[in-house]
Design a protein around this nucleic acid. Sequence first.
DNA 1: GCCTAACTATACAGGTCTGTCTAGTATGAT
DNA 2: ATCATACTAGACAGACCTGTATAGTTAGGC
Lengths: 164, 164
Amino acid sequence: MFYRDGINVTGIDRVIAGAGVAKASLYNNFSGKDELIAAYLEASLERFVDLLDELAEVAEPGERLARFFAELARSASDAAFSGCPFANAAVEVTPESPAHEVIVRFYERLAQFFAHVVETTPDDPAVKQLIVCYDGAMSAAKVLRDPSLITAAEALARRIVAVP
Amino acid sequence: MFYRDGINVTGIDRVIAGAGVAKASLYNNFSGKDELIAAYLEASLERFVDLLDELAEVAEPGERLARFFAELARSASDAAFSGCPFANAAVEVTPESPAHEVIVRFYERLAQFFAHVVETTPDDPAVKQLIVCYDGAMSAAKVLRDPSLITAAEALARRIVAVP
DNA sequence: GCCTAACTATACAGGTCTGTCTAGTATGAT
DNA sequence: ATCATACTAGACAGACCTGTATAGTTAGGC
């Protein structure tokens, strides 16, 4: 719900109804909505890290990048696609929220993956360019509902990695 | 307020207090919050279009792109920077909202500008890549509060336009 | 001077929000 | 068997939300 409808418009009552759980149970496990949001992002990050770990086993950098963007394209063509959950959340939460730390961690992990692809350090400009490719692809594809933006971003990323 | 704090967390009462205006006056000029949001984006779009029109007078494509990204970098280093108002709004409003049409119009106008830069049509893959550069730069710079992502995106854009 | 139109302030309705509290129930360990 | 723990349903408080209504005030056109 947080991903599909947005964080602020999704009330606690709808969350517990969807989960089939009593309100007190939720507040026994989470201190409040802020912590619930952070947990939602934590779970999303975990799945994302799993994907990156899988891709890390692919030897060839160009192939690694191709599979990464293929996965993005796959999710972008899904009807439930709504952009990057972390970039979306960043619009709705304050920097003081516990969710923000998870968002930053996501970007660090993404930078680490890209750094591995181009065999450099995470603060390399090439890594920043690849992050721009990712973020731009997800953001634009969300609004315009056009998966071809993902392939455009991939072509761009290939140039950075210097793989034809 | 919509830009700085977000659309959903900014209530009507705070808007009218900030504007120094009575509530009835607001509802005499706007049918509701949805229309107010659309008007806010419309005003943002107008300023953005003014910038693009200025840049259109610059003859050389590379210089046009440079000035465009220089303007982005300038706004990104502002303390009040909070990413692209249109991409942000897209996270908070539904596709049925009147605001959504303004957002789409923004992207069309942006594509038109980029098409003019590379002297091609708006549906050219190169234009999509430039949109990815813009969106990625704004989104990543917002979360990470790192203006150097704008320059990274600019370097990327320069490769698309094939200007060194 | 008067009338219209748009403003002002403020109260209110009806709804939703987060979070707390009460009260009863199930489960599992000792 | 007892007792702690975690669950259930649901009422409730207090705040905030959007939008409407009331009543008085100001300003411009004629």
